[in-house]
Design a protein around this nucleic acid. Structure first.
Lengths: 98, 98
DNA sequence: TAAAGTACTTTGAAATTCAAAGTTAAAATA
DNA sequence: TATTTTAACTTTGAATTTCAAAGTACTTTA
């Protein structure tokens, strides 16, 4: 087993890592806030959230706020667990790579 | 400026992150040791080390140990600096993503 | 002499990433 | 009422990246 086996390939990308980091500390974050925080295009953000949704690491909830459509993202328990494991693997790798 | 702008794309891959982590704490590491630690194929390792070499984040030194050819990799000052910056950006992102 | 080790390079296919343009539907504005 | 804007995508296609497998060249060991 290699040193990097516990590093999650899905989190091996800065945009998805950013999404997860944000959702770890915020109960919910909407599409436009994510877009603004990460400074990405609509399509790019949508495709990365889709990837995380497919893995069931995040969940989406659509609603109207007043009369405006609003899409909120949440982290799932599975996502939280996977992310923690990834961070542990990162720390381990960086701290003790031998 | 987005939250992830200081994350280095070159380190956004587990194998290159692994190589850098290893070279941060070891003065030099040879090809086969890297291969073993990371559990990757020859070609794959060679191409990732080449990517890091092209960025001048690592240096290579070829020699013979006894009669066997041996290739050692070192991290450069530039690589050390870039890696530290990346780790700081990672920590920042994970710790305070808002 | 044959097999194995070292450190690649090359090749090509598959997967991934990205921006740009298109879409849908509702809301605000003129 | 017609047009524009906003929100949140989906689609498309090109570019880039990744990876394994095969090939290379030279050396050493059995």
């Amino acid at each position: 087993m290699g040193l990097i086996d516990n590093i999650n390939k899905l989190f091996d990308h800065r945009i998805r890592l950013g999404i997860m980091s944000i959702l770890m500390v915020n109960d919910d974050v909407d599409f436009n806030r994510l877009k603004e925080l990460l400074d990405v295009t609509d399509g790019n953000l949508a495709s990365h959230t889709k990837t995380l949704e497919n893995a069931e690491y995040i969940k989406v909830e659509k609603a109207f706020i007043g009369k405006k459509p609003n899409t909120k993202y949440f982290i799932t328990p599975l996502g939280k667990q996977a992310f923690k494991k990834h961070i542990d693997a990162l720390e381990d790798l960086i701290r003790n790579p031998k």
